[in-house]
């Protein structure tokens, strides 16, 4: 018997090693290089790859890159902007998504649910670059949005000129399906007999929702929050196309440091700081909402 367990271990490892080694080489190694660079200083210059001949001895370990990220206003302002935009997008997508997830879970016939979910996810799979082109033409000066408000006699608003707002609208549209799915899955798991019990015991529909359905679906809401918030903070292309050069987000700053200034140490430090911030906020969020996860038996 012990033999077959050994054989199973070997077979499992043999089978998983190609994808595992691939991820290790393509993801873990570059990631370690970035973290290493973020702590790198170079006497009389900036640490970058490839190192010039003879520069290897001048390398030293330092926190100065992180000190700059935390002290210079440009990094703080842009990181804060990324976080604020991400919070707005998360709020908008999750608040819009809850009723739709609730509708599909509670009011759509079981045979049609898969079709509804499919319909909601389709826009996500269409080219994002093309959707950005569309949003530019919709929100731009005298674009489709301005045509629309013009019907009511409102002057052209040119929302595209307000970078942060244009970014928030575009991202809220792009991430809508991400928020619907986890909430839908959580609502599907809610035991329908609990709702009947609540109403039998004299609760109204509304109080049953507030006291039974909503708390039971909170794990889904939390998953939706994280699934939207985390990638939005790191968004690059929306900020580039909708925000122009005036409203960069943190990912755009990483590009500027890495490629325009060729300061690989600083670029790495900005990237690592952004990821660490997102990780800390996510962990705090989960800890603060612990009671919703633990309450199920």
């Amino acid at each position: 018997m012990a033999n077959s367990i050994e054989a199973e271990k070997r077979a499992g490892w043999a089978l998983v090693s190609p994808p595992f080694l691939y991820t290790l080489l393509a993801l873990a190694v570059p990631f370690i290089v970035i973290v290493g660079l973020s702590f790198a200083g170079l006497e009389g210059g900036r640490a970058r790859v490839p190192l010039a001949p003879g520069d290897a001895e001048k390398l030293y370990f330092t926190f100065e890159n992180f000190a700059r990220v935390l002290s210079e206003p440009i990094y703080r302002v842009v990181l804060l902007r990324s976080l604020i935009i991400a919070v707005c997008v998360t709020l908008a997508t999750v608040l819009m998504a809850y009723p739709i997830a609730y509708f599909v879970s509670f009011y759509v016939a079981p045979s049609k649910k898969a079709l509804w979910i499919f319909l909601i996810t389709i826009p996500f799979w269409t080219s994002y670059i093309i959707r950005l082109a569309l949003w530019r033409t919709i929100l731009g000066y005298n674009g489709i949005f301005d045509n629309f408000v013009g019907i009511f006699g409102i002057e052209p608003m040119n929302l595209l000129s307000n970078g942060a707002l244009a970014i928030t609208i575009t991202l809220s549209h792009a991430f809508a399906p991400f928020a619907v799915l986890p909430i839908f899955v959580a609502l599907e798991k809610v035991d329908r007999s609990l709702l009947e019990a609540g109403q039998d015991l004299g609760e109204t529909r509304w109080t049953t929702f507030l006291r039974v359905t909503l708390p039971l679906s909170m794990p889904g809401v939390m998953a939706a929050v994280l699934i939207v918030f985390i990638p939005v903070v790191g968004d690059y292309v929306t900020a580039k196309l909708m925000g122009g050069s005036t409203t960069p987000m943190i990912a755009n700053l990483v590009e500027v440091e890495m490629l325009k200034k060729r300061d690989h140490a600083m670029g790495s430090a900005v990237a690592v700081t952004a990821m660490a911030t997102v990780a800390v906020i996510s962990i705090l969020f989960v800890l603060l909402n612990r009671r919703f996860i633990g309450s199920k038996k």
Binding site: L27, P30, Y236, A251
Partner: peptide
């Protein structure tokens, strides 16, 4: 680890791979 890229910003993946490619020449 294999599922991790789902939650990593693409710019981080792109930049870290680019740095390694530049390094390797």
């Amino acid at each position: 680890l294999i599922l991790l890229p789902l939650v990593l910003p693409e710019i981080i993946i792109a930049m870290s791979m680019l740095i390694v490619l530049i390094w390797l020449g």
